[in-house]
Computed example of a mutant assay.
Amino acid sequence: MAATFDLTLDCVDAPVLAAFWKTALGYADEPPPAPFATREEWLAQFDLPEDDPGTGGGAWLCDPDGDGPRLSLLQVPEPKTAKNRLHIDVRVPGHGSPAERWARVRAESERLVTAGARVLAEFDGHHVVMADPEGNEFCVAAAPA
Results as ranks from 00 to 15, higher is better:
residue 130 M to R: 06
residue 136 N to A: 13
residue 108 E to S: 11
residue 140 V to I: 08
residue 120 L to E: 14
residue 106 R to A: 13
residue 131 A to P: 02
residue 136 N to G: 09
residue 125 G to V: 06
residue 110 E to L: 10
residue 134 E to W: 12
residue 121 A to K: 15
residue 125 G to S: 10
residue 137 E to L: 09
residue 126 H to S: 12
residue 132 D to I: 09
residue 108 E to H: 10
residue 127 H to K: 12
residue 122 E to G: 00
residue 123 F to R: 13
residue 131 A to V: 04
residue 105 V to R: 03
residue 127 H to L: 10
residue 140 V to M: 00
residue 136 N to V: 03
residue 123 F to P: 00
residue 143 A to K: 13
residue 103 A to C: 01
residue 142 A to K: 05
residue 105 V to H: 04
residue 103 A to D: 11
residue 109 S to D: 02
residue 114 T to Y: 02
residue 143 A to Q: 11
residue 144 P to I: 01
residue 117 A to K: 11
residue 128 V to K: 02
residue 126 H to V: 03
residue 141 A to Q: 11
residue 117 A to S: 13
residue 129 V to P: 02
residue 102 W to T: 04
residue 129 V to C: 05
residue 132 D to F: 08
residue 126 H to I: 02
residue 102 W to R: 02
residue 102 W to K: 05
residue 132 D to Q: 14
residue 144 P to N: 10
residue 105 V to G: 03
residue 106 R to N: 03
residue 117 A to F: 09
residue 104 R to P: 00
residue 105 V to D: 02
residue 143 A to N: 04
residue 110 E to R: 15
residue 110 E to S: 12
residue 124 D to Q: 14
residue 112 L to I: 05
residue 108 E to G: 03
residue 104 R to D: 03
residue 123 F to Y: 15
residue 103 A to Y: 02
residue 104 R to A: 13
residue 108 E to L: 10
residue 103 A to N: 05
residue 126 H to N: 12
residue 143 A to D: 04
residue 138 F to W: 15
residue 139 C to G: 03
residue 143 A to M: 06
residue 101 R to A: 06
residue 105 V to Q: 03
residue 105 V to L: 06
residue 111 R to N: 13
residue 120 L to K: 15
residue 139 C to Y: 05
residue 100 E to F: 07
residue 111 R to M: 07
residue 113 V to T: 12
residue 125 G to L: 04
residue 137 E to A: 13
residue 120 L to F: 07
residue 136 N to K: 11
residue 136 N to E: 01
residue 136 N to H: 15
residue 107 A to E: 07
residue 107 A to R: 13
residue 130 M to A: 08
residue 133 P to Q: 14
residue 138 F to G: 12
residue 141 A to R: 06
residue 113 V to H: 01
residue 111 R to G: 07
residue 144 P to R: 14
residue 130 M to E: 06
residue 141 A to N: 01
residue 113 V to M: 08
residue 119 V to M: 08
residue 121 A to S: 14
